[in-house]
Amino acid sequence: MQPDLGAVRLTLELATVVTVLLLFIGTPIAWWLARTRSRLKSFIGAMVALPLVLPPTVLGFYLLLLMGPNGPIGNITQSLGLGILPFTFSGLVVASTLYSMPFVVQPLQNAFEAIGERPLEVAATLRAPPLDTFFSVALPLAKPGFITAAILGFAHTVGEFGVVLMIGGNIPDRTRVVSVEIYNHVEALEYAQAHWLAGGMLAFSFLVLFALYSFNPNRK
C-alpha cells in the first residue's frame, strides 16, 4: 500500500501545480481568444483545443521527441543546464499543462465572452484604463468561470494517463501517478489493489463533478 500512497500524493501535487500554472497561463490566452478579432484566433483556438481530440499517446509521443536530447525543447533545457524533461516531475508538469489546457482555457473564454462588451465600455467611461478594467471588472465577473476552470483542470490532470505513461518512466514518487499505478496493478493482475485506486478515482471524479454542478446549477 505504501507505493500507492506515494502515487496519490504525487498525483495531488502534480494536479495542484498544473492547475495553478494553467490559471496563470490560461487567463491571458482565454482573454485574448474571447476579445480578439484577429485571424489568428481560429488557429490559436484550434491549437488549444487539440488535446480534446488527440489521443494522449500522440501528444506524449511528440513530447517525448521534442523534449528528448535531440528535440528542440530538449536542446533548450540542456543548454540551460536542466537536463532533459522526460522522466522528471517537471516534465510531467509541462506535459499535463499542455494536455489540460483546453479544460481551463475554454471555461475561462466562455466566462469572458459572457461578460460582453458593455461592462468594459462602462469601465472605460468611468476612467478605468484597460488593465485596471481587466482586474476590477472582468476578473470578478468571470469568477464562476475561474472556479469551473480550476476544478476541471485539476480533475483532468488527476485523471490523465496516456501522456504520463509516454514520458514518465514509471518512477516511484517522481512520475508514478495514480492512473499509471492502476494500470500497473491491472497489468500485474493485482486486481484488489487496482480496485482500491480505481474506485477511489471514480469517487473523486464524481465528487468533483457533483461539486461543480451544485456550485453552478444553471450551467448550460
Binding site: 465600455e121 484604463p129 484597460p130
Partner: peptide, 30 residues
C-alpha cells in the same frame, strides 16, 4: 484620446451597473 482619457460621463440605454459592486462602490468606481 481613448475613452478612459476623455473627461465625459456616459449613461447607457440599459442598466449598466457593475453587478459585483454595491451602489456605493459603483458610485465610487469612477
Amino acid at each position: 484620446l481613448p475613452t478612459h482619457k476623455r473627461r465625459l460621463g456616459y449613461v447607457f440605454q440599459e442598466s449598466s451597473l457593475f453587478p459585483h459592486l454595491d451602489i456605493r462602490r459603483n458610485l465610487e468606481y469612477g
